[in-house]
């Protein structure tokens, strides 16, 4: 038997789940299982209790309300991939999802699980950073919302308390006609990226950049919003030269090296991939007066 011994709990409601999490020692939450199950199988984690969130029905939904998109934490990556709402209103997320693992893992993996696992190169946290999503959290003490900018505490650790559960995220989609691109380099398709870049551009009627967002992954401890590059784009004509300058600035990001790639190589990739992402986003954008 691969996983270590634990007691298994499968609450049917969020109230039950937060009560269990508040009272059980050394408990782990099980969402889609595409990261926690390998860690259990390899005994990297040895929880005394596993709280399975899969029976809680209220946590899986994709909704549009009051010009916002709200996504439940237990929504499967696959359901987001095939959502017409996401395809039409948030093409960045769809393009990123197609690079998350494989069909077999997206069928189980959840957006909340990706956010909480918070691998530095994971696609969905980069998307949440680019979209300035709000992360919704619940505990027995109540609910709260924190901006994605504050969500990563440090390496693979979200800034939530041990008794808190991420229940969903919400964001304001970019306007009709905006351009989006998610570009990554991975050694094999479906692997975590070495470096990934999410880019969003909104162009006015003259082809000037009304608003820009660049999020980098695989460089720092978590997703990085690259405001220095965004400032170089803001208000400028979306020419190749403007985009190149913003992309080149990404080489200045503070990067960590590891066995897979050096810090220098990651900075190099950030510049190259940002160039590709920005050009694709520009070419996909419509000029909207």
């Amino acid at each position: 038997m691969k996983p270590p011994p634990f007691r298994y709990h499968d609450p049917g409601s969020l109230d039950e789940a937060v009560a269990l999490l508040a009272t059980l020692e050394n408990a782990k939450l099980l969402a889609g299982g595409q990261s926690l199950m390998p860690m259990l199988n390899m005994r990297f984690v040895q929880p005394d209790h596993v709280i399975d969130l899969n029976r809680i029905t209220g946590l899986a939904h994709i909704r549009e309300s009051a010009a916002r998109i709200e996504i439940g934490a237990m929504t499967r990556q696959r359901d987001l991939e095939f959502s017409d709402l996401i395809r039409c209103r948030c093409p960045l997320m769809r393009e990123a999802l197609l690079q998350v693992g494989h069909r077999q893992t997206r069928n189980r993996g959840t957006i909340g699980g990706s956010l909480c696992h918070l691998d530095p190169a994971a696609e969905l946290p980069m998307v949440a950073a680019a979209l300035e999503a709000d992360i919704q959290v619940a505990s027995r003490r109540g609910t709260r919302t924190l901006p994605m900018a504050d969500f990563p505490a440090f390496y693979m650790t979200p800034a939530i308390e041990p008794d808190e559960i991420v229940t969903g995220l919400g964001f304001t989609p970019w306007p009709e006609g905006h351009g989006a691109a998610f570009v990554e380099f991975a050694r094999r398709p479906g692997d975590f990226a070495v470096v990934g870049v999410a880019a969003l551009l909104d162009l006015d009627g003259a082809g000037c950049i009304r608003r820009a967002a660049i999020a980098l992954g695989g460089v720092g401890q978590g997703p990085v919003r690259w405001s220095r590059g965004e400032d170089l784009l803001q208000g400028e004509a979306a020419t190749d030269d403007t985009l190149r300058a913003a992309a080149e600035s990404c080489r200045g990001v503070a990067a960590m090296g590891d066995a897979q790639a050096s810090a220098d190589y990651r900075r190099h990739l950030a510049g190259v991939l940002a160039g590709r992402a920005l050009r694709a986003a520009r070419d996909r954008a419509r000029r909207v007066p």
Binding site: Y8, Q34, N41, N107, R108
Partner: peptide, 12 residues
């Protein structure tokens, strides 16, 4: 739906 059966618990 396809799934990795090593990444699911039988109880699930």
């Amino acid at each position: 739906r396809s799934a990795r059966s090593c990444l699911m618990l039988a109880v699930q």
